[in-house]
Design a protein around this nucleic acid. Structure first.
Length: 423
RNA sequence: GUGGGAGUAGCUCAGUCGGUAGAGCGUCGGAUUGUGGUUCCGAAUGUCGCGGGUUCGAACCCCGUCUCUCACCCCA
């Protein structure tokens, strides 16, 4: 048997109904904020991710699906979607429009990792980006929009963690402070954290090593937000403004000076929402500002802010009422010919009902009326219309309520309207 | 890439001391030729994940491998 590739999975009905509802909610809410959809290729030049996500990141050096195509080009299945959006922005000179772009996307992403709870090699993200507006207002707007969306799905009590990581110009000073701090505590660092300190120092901040956690949690551990007022007043002001706007919008947030993110391109604002029930992979969504990314890709100096939601994880922890409602199928009408001679007649009635806008689950009846009724109910039909010879002569059909098994003979004339009222 | 757990029918699982495989649910047929949910009768379906080894004999023990799963790493 040929099975799906490791770390990939089929989404089957009725689960796909849930996915569709979630995506429809995203489209609705994002549109309220003036966002339009962008669709970028799943396949991109490898160089795009090397330059945007960052060569030092694990994503690039060990998690990408990279291969050489028949034309000898190195291509990669996108591990995230922001780079593609940024690439498209530059490639199509969208900056020329003279306005900020508010874009959202949804689709599959690929990372070659060992699968576990909430982590797949093919996973789906829903994300949004604002390109061309440097203000904290936009940071606040995407976070507010996010909460609006999550609220629509029925989430309550979620809180977003926020932090500022400064700018490319000021971060080295902070990294230095972190290194200095650990230089006197080097012995407590495990192998992993030593490597981090060398390669991607800020990752040490969310180490899972209890000893390191304790150190990092101590009063004396340097925090970027503490350094900002003197080191980077502009970022400090940005951060304060964002907090004020979130307070004004009644979004619950908590400042987490230890919050850092894995992609190299973030500047200033970073944020994250985690959720219970996802095991160790508890990050439900993450985002931040990236004021250098577009120019790094050869575009005009353009600030950006965005987020990405792990859709698989989102569906995993979706509030039950929303899931339940989404799983309810179409309340369809089963049309069943009683005998094979009744097929054309039944067919005509099905067409008539569909024409009136009613969902019809047509049954061939080849295994008998009983089986047809049974399978009709299994696939979610609530009413069955039995089309037979005897009733045909009288210009009627048998209308059966599947749940109660009660039935009555109704005239064909005006049938659609009567059924509409009963659905 | 590293470590733990698991893999038996479509699904959930049992399988004793190593003696060539079972249940429930589901599916299909019949009792019921124009009416399904209950009941009764009957039936089908397995490379016991795969490959090798030990053994007279392996679902069971050993080795390898694949997949799933959980954790590390990393991240959504």
């Amino acid at each position: 048997m040929i099975t799906s590739v490791k770390g990939t999975r089929d989404l089957l009905p009725p689960d796909t109904r849930v996915w569709n509802r979630v995506e429809a909610a995203a489209r609705d809410v994002f549109a309220l904020y003036g966002f339009d959809e962008i669709r970028t290729p799943v396949l991109e030049s490898t160089e795009l991710f090397v330059r945007s996500v960052g060569e030092s990141s694990d994503i690039v050096h060990k998690e990408m699906y990279t291969f050489t195509d028949r034309g000898d080009r190195s291509v990669t299945l996108r591990p995230e979607n922001t780079a593609g959006v940024a690439r498209a922005y530059v490639e199509h000179s969208l900056a020329q429009a003279g306005r900020p772009w508010k874009l959202y996307y949804m689709g599959p992403q690929f990372r070659y990792e060992r699968p576990q709870k909430g982590r797949y090699r093919e996973f789906r993200q829903i994300g949004a980006e604002v390109l061309g507006d440097p203000t904290a207002v936009m940071d606040a707007e995407v976070i507010v929009m996010l909460f609006d969306f999550l609220g629509r799905l029925g989430f309550t009590g979620l809180s977003v963690s926020i932090n500022s990581v400064g700018t490319e110009a000021t971060r080295p000073a902070y990294v230095e402070a972190v290194r200095t701090f650990f230089s006197s505590n080097e012995k407590t660092l495990g192998e992993d954290d030593r490597r981090r300190l060398a390669d991607n120092p800020l990752r040490v901040l969310d180490s899972k090593d209890p000893a390191v956690k304790q150190l990092v949690a101590s009063e004396t551990f340097p925090k970027m937000v503490d350094l900002l007022p003197t080191l980077d007043p502009a970022s400090d002001a940005h951060h304060r403004e964002l907090k004020a706007l979130l307070v004004a919008s009644k979004v619950t947030f908590k400042e987490d000076p230890l919050l850092v993110r894995g992609l190299d391109y973030y500047t200033r604002t970073v944020f994250e929402v985690t959720a219970e029930g996802l095991g160790a992979q508890n990050a439900l969504l993450g985002g931040g500002r990236y004021d250098k990314l577009i120019s790094d890709l050869g575009g005009p100096k353009t600030p950006g802010i965005g987020f990405a939601i792990g859709e698989d994880r989102l569906v995993d922890v979706l509030p039950e009422p929303f899931r339940k409602k989404a799983l309810e199928g179409m309340r369809a009408i089963a049309v069943v010919p009683v005998g094979s001679a009744d097929m054309p007649d039944a067919w005509g009635i099905a067409r008539l009902l569909r024409g009136a806008g009613l969902p019809v689950d047509f049954h061939s009846g080849h295994r008998g009326v009983g089986q047809a009724l049974k399978s009709a109910e299994k696939s979610g039909a609530v009413i069955a219309v039995l089309v037979g010879q005897e009733e045909g002569l009288r210009g009627t059909v048998v209308v059966k309520t599947l749940a109660t098994r009660s039935q009555e003979e109704l005239p064909r004339e005006g049938l659609a309207a009567v059924l509409q009222a009963r659905l």
